[in-house]
Design a protein around this nucleic acid. Structure first.
Lengths: 229, 229
DNA sequence: CGACACTTTGACGCACTTCAAAGGGGGTGG
DNA sequence: CCACCCCCTTTGAAGTGCGTCAAAGTGTCG
């Protein structure tokens, strides 16, 4: 049983564990077999959940808010591989070390699962195994789509990015960005200034509106789609 | 048994099947559980092994030469995701469609395996399952490393590329490039001209030598490493 | 030998970066 | 509640790395 594996990873997590899991049920977070067990942990914004090359002993499910995975180059350039939102699983690696680090974009809560426990449970549970397989597939797809994005022009990258995060909240067109311009820039392989100018030019083209820094209204997704490539 | 699944995928493959498998043993191709079964198929250079969005019914092991995986943008831009060399497995997807196409860079030979057969065999064979899991992990790592490459400068990209293909033939520093400049450019997200100029400037820096179009001598890997970022 | 595809080189233009400075917004303390 | 500060965002001007276009050079195959 996975529940046997629950240990106090941090004192904070230990204290808040039960209360948080109870809170989580009210958050509209998708429910799966992962939700019943695992250690609830909170992270302040910009704090590190795990670092590059650290042992990948845990697998995480994001309970609330937003996480980014990063890779740093020697000269300080930063690559944000992906943003994860509530309900997403992250931190699963085929190798035993994390090739990227994970940080909280804003104050966030995760459920942590012992990798060994999950993997050994999967050995005898084909449904779980399928879930993990699908997860790896999604990660691969995500990485490949990002590759494709990185060969596009600045405007195309920003438009693609907006559509991608817009998909997650399809119903209304108001998108609340959890990350700042620097995060977006490092995700798209651009500078902050270029991101800003691209957003502005999308606004001029009536594709979007920018009521505040962090809120974007997707006024015309068709224009955005046409600008994607 | 997988051997039951062997069918004639193409007439050519059918005819050459046995003879090719016999030839393959002499090629120094790494041997694994995959080599005993599967359909040997040959492809002329630039011919397509499978296309984007085609059903992913087969998994392939490259017996000889070189394969590239491609994605095309609407306006004709091409992204080469990866090059595969003899012994590599490719074409395994979590989804049931190939998200990228695969083409032969030069005349090449592959062994094809029914995906269903491999997957169902893996269900009862944990060693094979581990092999497939590791393969997905490699693909993910490859994609992520490529992401990182695409945020670098032209010179850094070319240097990284040379070191990567240089790793495969570590012993001597003579690298025989199977692909042309356009393939390299489309892999690195650059133009042919920029690739050429970067190679020339690496030659001027005494990092490499270019005796012919397709042969590159890695004269100083330390310089290349320093130029990687 | 000639046709062809690929590679290389040069000149020029542009998209994005860099550098600099001004313009909010939100939080804290008085 | 206002004032101040800090961080983030935005804008402008100038620089540059890479793309584009054009043409010459090189290897290969019939």
């Amino acid at each position: 049983m996975l529940s046997d594996e629950i240990v106090a990873v941090s004192y904070l997590a230990h204290l808040r564990n039960r209360a948080m899991r109870e809170q989580l049920t009210g958050f509209g977070v998708p429910v799966s077999r992962f939700d019943r067990v695992g250690i609830a942990m909170s992270f302040f914004r910009n704090s590190e959940i795990y670092g590059e090359n650290e042992p990948a002993d845990y697998l995480y499910k994001l309970a609330s808010e937003t996480i980014r995975t990063c890779k740093l180059l020697a000269d300080g350039r930063r690559q944000i591989g992906a943003f994860y939102t509530a309900g997403d699983l992250f931190g699963l690696e085929a190798a035993d070390k994390h090739p990227v680090s994970a940080e909280a974009v804003v104050d966030s809560t995760v459920l942590a699962f012992k990798r060994n426990a999950v993997m050994s449970l999967a050995a005898s549970n084909s449904a779980l195994q399928g879930e993990l397989w699908a997860l790896m597939g999604q990660e691969l797809q995500r990485a490949r789509r990002h590759n494709l994005l990185l060969i596009k022009t600045a405007l195309e990258r920003v438009a693609s990015f907006l559509l991608e995060i817009g998909e997650r909240s399809e119903i209304n067109s108001n998108v609340e960005l959890p990350m700042n311009r620097r995060d977006i820039a490092d995700h798209l392989g651009l500078t902050v200034e270029t991101v800003v100018r691209s957003l502005r030019s999308l606004e001029v083209a009536s594709a979007i509106a920018l009521p505040t820094f962090k809120r974007i209204v997707l006024r015309d997704r068709e224009i955005l789609k046409r600008m994607c490539s």
